[in-house]
């Protein structure tokens, strides 16, 4: 029961954070709101019986991919010039952030304190790490290999695209 209520609250938080993310002028704010939406989605994943994917959602999406976005935004210095004036943020800036952050913190505390997975007597279905690992490395072993190939292709591609003209000429001279 409480898990159902939490699902709808977290869904509202995810929708609100995503909506705020796509209307921001400054991409840095958009990334921050998207991180909040990803946290809400990770809690939804946990409620739906995917604890490992929920953890990976926070680690991979919020921890790696969004930080990569922030790196590139700051490297290119593309934030609008109006945002560089450091005026004190008013209630218009604080209220959506506070609302979303408070909802997320409350729901996380509820998740820890009430343990909805066991509150109905019988624990609901969830993928145990054992089942997950067995399926991943036994039934989907080929997919894991293909994905690792793909990641290395992506690394090579990103290196090639990101090479500067000077470095490219340098490499051609050497060969």
């Amino acid at each position: 029961m409480i898990a159902t209520v939490m699902f709808y609250l977290l869904g509202a938080v995810a929708l609100g954070a995503t909506g705020l993310a796509i209307i921001q002028r400054n991409p840095v704010y958009a990334v921050i709101y998207l991180v909040k939406s990803i946290f809400a989605l990770a809690l939804i994943f946990y409620l739906l019986g995917a604890p490992l994917v929920a953890a990976l959602q926070v680690i991979v999406y919020a921890g790696a991919i969004m930080v990569l976005f922030l790196f590139v935004i700051m490297m290119l210095e593309i934030t609008p010039t109006s945002a560089t004036q450091c005026t004190a943020p008013g209630w218009a800036q604080w209220s959506p952030v506070l609302l979303l952050a408070l909802t997320l913190v409350t729901l996380t505390l509820l998740l820890i304190g009430l343990d909805p997975l066991a509150s109905e007597g019988v624990p609901r279905w969830h993928a145990s790490p054992r089942d997950f690992g067995y399926a991943l490395f036994k039934e989907y072993a080929l997919a894991v290999k293909i994905i690792s190939f793909q990641l290395s292709f992506a690394a090579v591609g990103a290196f090639h695209v990101g090479m500067t003209e000077r470095r490219r000429a340098q490499l051609e001279d050497e060969s």
């Binding site: 995917a50 590139v72 992506a154």
Partner: peptide
């Protein structure tokens, strides 16, 4: 859930190339 794991890997590759 395994599909989501694969999706995450694909997303990481897509973002790396896209941002480059």
């Amino acid at each position: 859930q395994i599909m989501v794991l694969i999706l995450m890997a694909i997303t990481a590759a897509e973002v790396a190339i896209g941002l480059a």
